[in-house]
Every structure is written in structure tokens, then in C-alpha cells.
Write a protein that binds this DNA or RNA. Sequence first.
DNA 1: TATCTGTTGTAACAAAAGTCACAAGTATTG
DNA 2: CAATACTTGTGACTTTTGTTACAACAGATA
Lengths: 203, 203
Amino acid sequence: MIDIFIQKLKITEPELIKEIRECSTITTHKKGDFIIKENEYIKVLKIVLEGKVRVYQANEDREILIYYLNSMETCTLSLSACFEDCKSNVNAIVEEDCTILNIPVRFVKDWNFKYKSWNNFTTNIFRESYMHLINQYSNLAFQPLKDRLYDYLISKAENSIVKKSHQQLAKELGTTREVISRLLKNLEKENKVVLGQKEIIIS
Amino acid sequence: MIDIFIQKLKITEPELIKEIRECSTITTHKKGDFIIKENEYIKVLKIVLEGKVRVYQANEDREILIYYLNSMETCTLSLSACFEDCKSNVNAIVEEDCTILNIPVRFVKDWNFKYKSWNNFTTNIFRESYMHLINQYSNLAFQPLKDRLYDYLISKAENSIVKKSHQQLAKELGTTREVISRLLKNLEKENKVVLGQKEIIIS
DNA sequence: TATCTGTTGTAACAAAAGTCACAAGTATTG
DNA sequence: CAATACTTGTGACTTTTGTTACAACAGATA
């Protein structure tokens, strides 16, 4: 598993590969486990080798998705935290049983100047995440929820099907279940989707 | 001017200081000039030595602030763009006449692995910007505009006074002037602020 | 002073989003 | 099968935000 990750990162330095193997730990987590909780100090960089994790912010009654971590994806927030001892401002919950590669913060910081390929890796993650978040931000500001929902469905569809409950969508888009149900019904009336049980078909 | 910036960055390597001086250019811009436009390729890292720049996203009829660049602040977006040739997804307009330090992208990338203090600088900028943006994001998702406005006024107040027009505030918070005027009037009725011409006093 | 531009106030209405309450269907599991 | 939890539908209502239209005032300048 680590090999695939190392390959994906285009890590060439043998010493770095050795260091990663030596200092990192691999943990497994069940669906529903919290990987990171708000206000907790982050002490390791977390990379999902397998499974799925949802990283989100919450207020009293609603949640909004920051990003999903799928196989071989890196938690930008934990990476960010590695460079300065700081608390998390998000939660991360396991959505599908997963295997996680944990690298203690001090290594992440050291490697950044020691190994070129690690440096490329971290700056790429930052760049991509930052660009993505800015776009999310202005969509949230300017797009009506109906449009955000429809765009989101399209982006998540596999073979034009999205297997999610209305409640899940609400948590991802930062609203409530009733609102999602209503908007989906409207989309169905406009013949843009067909609704099923935990399933939305885009037409 | 460059000296202060170098000092602020805690740059110790004499060669780096030399390189910065040699490769960078200093430009001046008048109020209203565009530093960066949406969909333009970014070719230099921009650091505001003096003056003020507003970086924002726009749609047809509204704008939302991403961040202000004040004296000695670095444009995270242009930094981000340095690591991969890419188009801007924001605009940057001069709000107060300014002096800008421009560093071509290839240097920014090289230095990141060549000089430790430069590496620290870039990762710090990324970390702070990313953390800040995540918080802005969830505020936008969860906080009513009235609260966002009030919090914003408090954060921008100098001696409890904010010298901005309603139109400016609208552009910063991603809404329209009329809405801001109404919400401010409500805040005044609740004795939270006193309104004047281009001036809001927080009480 | 007259004119122009920018600023603020505000009413009336429309649209979007959130809340509450309840009903009914589906899936899961002891 | 019965009980339970999850899922979806939906009406009625409220709150928030956006839109349109117009009036009045302030400040700068010719």
C-alpha cells in the first residue's frame, strides 16, 4: 500500500522512501470513527491509503463539506498543521473503513527542505487545495443552492447515478434535509433528475 | 523598502538576499489599476511593499473579498500560481497607490528548495491563508449576513470606527448595497453602531 | 452657484432558504 | 413478524436576502 503512495508522489530518493517506512505508522479505522476532531491538536500528517474520510466543518445544527479523502489522498489540513503546532478547525469522520498512513509532524517539516520530491508533494497539495477552496468559496457566495446542488450531483455521478441520501447531500452542501428534498423535487419536475431510494439518476 | 520585507521574512542567507535584489522588479500602481485579472496567466509573485490591494472574486453583479493586501503582505494566489503555470481565478485591484515587488515564478519555485528561509516563508503563507479561508468558508455557510457584517465591522474597526461606504462593505461581504444599508440600520436601532457619512462607529 | 457623482434611506415586493410538524415508505435486525 | 431506525414527501409558515425604484443629501468641481 505504501508503495503505491510513494509511486504516486513520484518519490525517487531512496533515503526518503526509507525514512517514510521507518517513521510512519499505519492505522485502520471503522466507519463512524473520528480521525480528527475540532479543537484537537494535530500531531501527524494523515494520508488515506484506502477507504474514505469526510472532512467537514460543523455548527450547531448543520455541517458543510470541506473535502472528501479517497484512496491515496492527503489531508491538506493536517499537512498545514504540520508546519505550526495548531488546533484543527475541522472534523474528519470515516465514511468507509480505512487504512491511514500517519507521519509525525516533525518529519513532514524536515523533509520539506531535505527532499525535493517531498517539497513538490507538499506545495502541490497546498496549491491545489487552495485553488479549489477559493472556487468553492465564491460558488457558495454567488450560486443559488439549487445550482450548487445540481452541479454537485453531476460532479459526483458515476454512470449518471448518485447514491446518496438527501441527508448526506444536505451535510455536504451546508443545508438541511428538507431543503434538499424540495430542491430535488423541483429538479425532478424539470426532468433534470429521477429520484429513487438513496439514489438520484441524472437525466 | 525591500530591506524591511527581507527583514520581515527573517531571511538570513546573503545569497538569497542578493538573488531577490537581482531578479525582482519594483513597480508602482495607481488607485484603480488592476494588478491581476481573472483568467490571466500569473507570471510573477506579487508582494505589496506599500499601499493596499483588494483581491476578490466577481460574478455578474456582485463581488466578494478574498483578502486585502496591505503593506508587506504577499499575494497567496500569485504564490500558488508560481508552482504551476495557471490562470488566475480572482481579480486584484489597487485601492491605495502602491509599490509592488515582483518576483518571476521560476525563482520562487527554485528558492523553495534552495533556501531554508524562503521555504519557511512560502509554507507559512500557505498555511495561514488556507486556515483563514476555511474559516471564512464556514462563516459564509453558517452565519447570517447580519452577524458576518457585525463581526467584520469589529475586525476592521480602528478606534471603534470603520471608514467605509455601504457599497464597499457590500463588495467585501458578497452582497448588495441595499442589503448592507438595511442591516446597518437594524444594527443602529439595536444601538450596536452609529451611522455617519462613510463612517460607522461601533458602540 | 449649478452640476455631477457618489452616498444613504427606504418602501414594496419577490425569491431563496430555513423551520416545524407530521405522514408514509423502506430497510434492518432481533 | 414486530419493532426500530432511516428515508422521503410535503404543506404551511417564517426569516433572510435580493431586486426595483425612487428620493434626498454630501462633496467635489467647473
